[in-house]
Each structure stands twice: as C-alpha cells, then as structure tokens.
C-alpha cells in the first residue's frame, strides 16, 4: 500500500529516525498513526444493566472482595 506525504515531511522524518530502531520512514509513520488512532478512541468502559451489575456485586460480596 502506498500513501503520499509531502517530500519535506519525508525528509524531516528520515533525519529524525537516524540512529533509532526505526528502519524506515514507513515504519515510523505506521507507528505514529497507530498511536494517534489508539488515543482517539473513545475512553468508555463496558456498560452493564443494573441487574447484571447487582448480580456480579452479590458474588463479589459472597466471596469477600467487597463489604
């Protein structure tokens, strides 16, 4: 898969990754995009109905994890 980026940016990244563990500009761009996308994902915990949650709480109480 090929994606275009400005030549100036390419040169900047190329200089930046010199002496690092990144072997290529592609590898660096992939890394950064993955990081950015992961951070953009909505920070939302799972949603349980009150009934489901109470059932779990009962078990946690019975096992002594919560009072």
């Amino acid at each position: 898969m090929k994606i275009s980026i400005p030549k100036t940016l390419y040169e900047k990244i190329k200089a930046r990754i010199e002496g690092t563990d990144f072997d290529s500009v592609s590898e660096y761009v992939t890394y950064v995009v993955r990081e950015v996308l992961a951070n953009l994902e909505e920070e939302k915990d799972i949603t349980l109905t009150k009934e489901e949650e109470d059932k779990v709480k009962e078990r946690l109480k019975a096992l002594g994890y919560i009072d």
């Binding site: 915990d45 349980l48 489901e52 949650e53 779990v56 078990r59 994890y65 919560i66």
Partner: peptide, 12 residues
C-alpha cells in the same frame, strides 16, 4: 474472577 467481575470490583 472473570473480566466482568474484576471490572465491577475496580469500580466499587
């Protein structure tokens, strides 16, 4: 404990 249980536990 299963994931759903630890998650409720952490919330509590």
């Amino acid at each position: 404990l299963r994931p759903i249980e630890t998650r409720v536990l952490f919330k509590e």
